[in-house]
Design a protein around this nucleic acid. Structure first.
Ligand code: DTP
Ligand code: DTP
Ligand code: MG
Ligand code: MG
Lengths: 456, 456
DNA sequence: TCGCATAAA
DNA sequence: TACTTTTATGCGA
DNA sequence: ACCCACACC
DNA sequence: TACTGGTGTGGGT
């Protein structure tokens, strides 16, 4: 049912083969049921159901005329989007495998071969692939994970080690694109178009051969199209990176980069190669762990790749949106395109735009670092507290940590936001705009305490 | 079903009013299900079902003649038992209320009013009455108790404190019967017949009045039978303790004793007064907590008292026997009597004897201390261990503790018994007879290790 | 005598 | 993850 | 500007 | 008893 789609594990995440989903779901449900957390999940599921209800009734009264008109507009919009399609760049998304867990297995050899989870009894950040066989996942409470996998070993996170490993990975990536965009400790986008253009024939000769690259179907296409493997320059010596040969070369480059990352960190990294960020990101998940995937720079190939792609795989579509779309009988990208008129009428322009681009495989290929951060803060969850002074203490401590970080990073803020979570997992947010930008701890503290007292 | 009767809380234990049994059972079941413990419970339930199966098929083929003959023998046996019925003694069973918990609430005043459980996350020895409202019970794992009662406070046991309290209680009881039989730290049997016979009129005058005694129905009978309350001597000045007046006087004596126990320990003790141990024991549970119950020394009253008494209340009938009897449509003592022929044919002579005596309210009234102990030992449960040396260490340590106890108590033993529990809660037992009685630690250790190695 | 099941606090 | 510890009795092989 | 819901790692 | 912490986006008001 609806709440199940919230609490059960996502069926098309990496490594779901060989996991007994029914059994796992049942364990999760039975351990969650009756808890305040579960009550809250049901509340949220009901809320989603309500949203769906509204949408469906709006859909029910749509006139044929309105739908025809929307269809025309959507069609025109798609043609417009097609003019934006850019197949010229070679975008790579790198994503380390079970990152925190892999670092721990590397640093604590006695744990190798055993299932581990990073975190504590309350919450796991991630789990080793060994543990994932049992259904253990990121964002799963440790006590449920232990029920799924009694042999699971809980390992406390060592963030400094992950940061160090991250820096090592980034050093390798910088060799291929000094302007790579890191999006988290373990993943980054690169544009290797320029790097590939600069490759000399000598460089190319040093690349690993295509036969060792781990994405057979597309590789075979590339090989069959050009019977002379490894030859990827045209008659003028300038490479056309949109051809299958060009992408095959990209695959060799990425394979070399992944090999170097593994050599320097003993960590495995998976990668996706495509002509924009979204497709590259989907690709990096395709052959996890320790695999890569290369999508040709070809509209037909892209549409074929996406046709049966579950909506949930599109970055930006999470459990809720997936559920809403499912209720509209839309579970893959093909359906997204087929229902474009309905989507145009039911969703906001921004969402419609997002759905269409996603389904067509049209997205940004900008991998330059993003400008500045927009917020900074701390939060902590604790046992039920009712005494105002206790809450004040917690609040002040978080203010202190935040102000310290702001000072260290030389940041200023203009708004102070207080987040409150009750024992039944309801979240409240209260904010004030300060008269001026500041990083002054007393100012932030006064603002936060003011917000706190406003809520008694 | 069958496993439910094993894991769910006993519905007629003290303080089951106001407990939501369905909800509680559901929580227990859902938290147990899927665990190795639960698997074992199902195994045992199946075993009981098998026993029942055999019994029922034996019952099915019984000839009318066999039943008639059994009926005759049972009837004769009952008449024989009646000749043994002894109403002359005044037997008291004292049982402290929520003993460990009460000591903790006494010694840690900040815990008063709050639900507490004595033990840890793994197992509780007992729970305060406050906690019992939520379904929390003795022998319940702490983590299930916490699910039933999130406010529950777990308190580590302090056995020395309970022993000290027990000694204080016993000091009071010794005033009434120096030969009282203590059966555990918190309970004991007394025979106050002689004490009552020695009471002077002055002593009687100092006893608390009957109106404050907490067992109204029988007290009222006593009062109504004798309109002059407090007068319990016959014309000759010798008391007939089998009369209602005699028992009313006993109730006053017991009330005084309980008051003294409360004064010296700040603990409340409940008591049952009857003419044998079994009836007194059932009585002590009747008006818990801080209550007492007096059963007249009268065959009709006893049979009336027992008629609808659930079999499970009879000391010696536990979950399994209750279940077996239930399958034979026997749930109370009346049914036990009515089915006497069947019981004679299906059970062993000892069991039949026990059932008949119990249902008739005929039992031993010997409250003298029992002779010697028959065994002494230690056990400990630990996480899964597979290495032989680790198991040897555990075993040797238990031998050490046992030998030490034997020396302290100047005991000798002739048999060494090793108990093994596997991760799936199966229990094995291996024993050897020694050539001679001993308390020698090395001898015991060698014997134990030999048994251990026999099991690899 | 041994091993197991049942019962109790 | 987390279902005790100590003592006793009865039954069947 | 504020508050909430959703998403991702 | 144990369901995170840090950051960003979009929508509704
Ligand atoms: N929900 C979360 N809460 C806190 N930390 C998280 C969460 N999800 C992931 N992390 C941390 C731990 C991960 O190792 C790290 C990278 O996340 P992510 O790439 O999604 O998974 P992963 O690298 O552990 O496995 P994989 O990428 O192989 O699926 O970020
Ligand atoms: N299953 C058990 N395991 C270990 N210790 C126990 C167990 N049951 C009881 N105890 C201990 C703790 C108790 O306080 C003490 C006396 O037991 P008992 O008289 O049956 O319950 P109680 O005194 O706690 O409550 P009450 O008598 O009011 O029902 O023995
Ligand atoms: Mg990763
Ligand atoms: Mg008691």
């Amino acid at each position: 049912d609806a709440v199940l789609s919230r609490i059960s594990l996502c069926p098309h995440k990496a490594g779901m083969d060989s996991v007994n989903k029914n059994k796992t779901d049942e364990v999760i449900r039975s351990m969650s049921e009756g808890s305040r957390f579960y009550d809250n999940e049901r509340r949220k599921a009901a809320q989603t159901a309500q949203r769906v209800q509204v949408m469906k009734s709006r859909a029910a009264v749509l006139s044929t005329g309105a739908l025809q008109q929307a269809e025309a507009m959507a069609s025109a919009f798609e043609r417009q989007l097609e003019t934006e399609r850019d197949l010229s760049r070679v975008i790579v998304h790198c994503d380390a495998d079970a990152f925190y867990a892999a670092v721990e297995l590397r640093d604590q050899p006695h744990l190798r071969g055993k299932p581990i989870g990073i975190g504590g009894i309350g919450m796991l950040s991630t789990a080793s692939y060994e543990a994932r066989k049992f259904g253990v996942r990121s964002a799963m409470p440790g006590y449920i994970a232990l029920r799924l996998c009694p042999e699971l070993i809980l390992v406390k996170p060592r963030f400094h080690a992950y940061e160090a490993a991250s820096r090592q990975l980034q050093a390798v990536m910088a060799q291929y694109d000094p302007n790579f965009r890191s999006v988290s400790l373990d993943e980054a986008y690169l544009d290797i178009t320029d790097y590939m253009a600069r490759l000399t024939p000598g460089d190319v000769a040093q690349l690993p051969p295509l036969t060792t690259v781990a994405d057979p179907p597309l590789v075979q296409e590339a090989n069959s199209a050009d019977s002379k493997p490894g030859m990827a320059t045209d008659s003028a010596g300038a490479r056309n990176l949109t051809t299958l040969e060009g992408r095959a070369l990209a695959a060799r480059v990425v394979h070399q980069m992944r090999t170097r990352m593994h050599e320097t960190t003993q960590l495995t990294v998976s990668a996706g190669i495509a002509c924009n960020r979204m497709l590259a990101k989907i690709g990096s998940d395709q052959n996890k762990p320790d695999g890569q995937f290369c999508l040709p720079a070809d509209r037909a190939a892209i549409l074929a790749f996406l046709a049966n792609m579950p909506t949930r795989k599109i970055p930006g579509i999470g459990k809720v949106t997936e559920q809403i779309l499912r209720e509209l009988d839309i579970t893959n990208c093909q359906a997204l395109l087929q229902q474009r008129a309905l989507l145009k009428l039911l969703f906001t322009p921004i969402s419609f735009d997002f759905f269409m681009r996603s389904a067509l495989g049209i997205a940004s290929n900008n991998t330059r670092k993003r400008s500045e951060r927009k917020s900074i803060g701390h939060e902590t969850t604790f046992r039920e507290l009712n005494q105002v002074p206790d809450l004040e203490d917690k609040c002040l401590h978080l203010c202190h940590k935040t102000a310290l970080d702001m000072e260290r990073k030389a940041l200023l803020g203009r708004s102070v936001c207080l987040k409150l979570k009750t024992v039944d997992f309801k979240v409240k947010q209260r904010s004030v705009l300060l008269p001026a930008h500041t990083a002054d701890e007393p100012v932030i503290k006064r603002a936060a305490l003011g917000l706190l007292h406003r809520e008694l």
